[in-house]
Amino acid sequence: MASGKFLPLPYFFISSDWKILDYSHAASSIFLIGDDFSSLVDEENRQKVSQYIQPHLSEMQFELNMKTKHDPLAVFEISVRWEADEAHIICVEKTKEIDQLASDLMKLRSRLSETDFELLEKKEELEDAINRIHKLSGPFIPLYEEAGLVPLFGDLQADKLQVIEANILSRIDEEEYEQVFFDFHGVGKITMNGKEKLGQLFEAIQLMGTKTVIVGLSPSQVQGLGSKGTLQADAMASLQQAISIYVKKAEP
């Protein structure tokens, strides 16, 4: 057969014990060529050479890190073909493509993580904002020494009431109020969970020895409230009425 000397790619012709019998000019311009094919790779890659360059594997392709004149760990795609006890090997360098891929992946990776973390941060900010809105939907306003007012706003769901409850209970605990007025005039819908939570809130306040006065509940909001029969609260139609009654009582 014609010599491989002038093949435009690194080419080796080797014996079954990996002795280099011949090589192309393209090979000698890239590699420092010794006697043995495995001298072209470092120790770790020698394992791959001895495993995959074997006469019983008549045709084989695999990747190998090889030592070139410029790069001690260049990536090559190796194609081996055996003819009896001798093999033809062509090495195609992939280092450039791999480096390009690695740097593209790096860029993508940092962009992905940036966007992802920005999203996560925004989500946390949003949660903080919602929490704050919830808190402002049921502020505690001290009216006079013994009474406080909680005007409720918007639809009431359990998670909103959870936030409101924590605030109210700590205020009652600090100041020992006798009555707390809950004004429902600004409330839209109350969800089922919301009603349950509301019942629990009133009970908790009563357990602390404070009276709850409910003002301005509409008929649709009343259904399902206090269904367990544990709710003890005075109810009034308007805030004006409620305050005037209790203020009179409070006067000596």
Binding site: Q47, F62, E63, K94
Partner: peptide, 12 residues
């Protein structure tokens, strides 16, 4: 990679 099951690109 040593067992020739994946490529360097897969590793990356």
């Amino acid at each position: 990679w040593l067992r020739n099951e994946i490529t360097v690109a897969d590793e990356h």
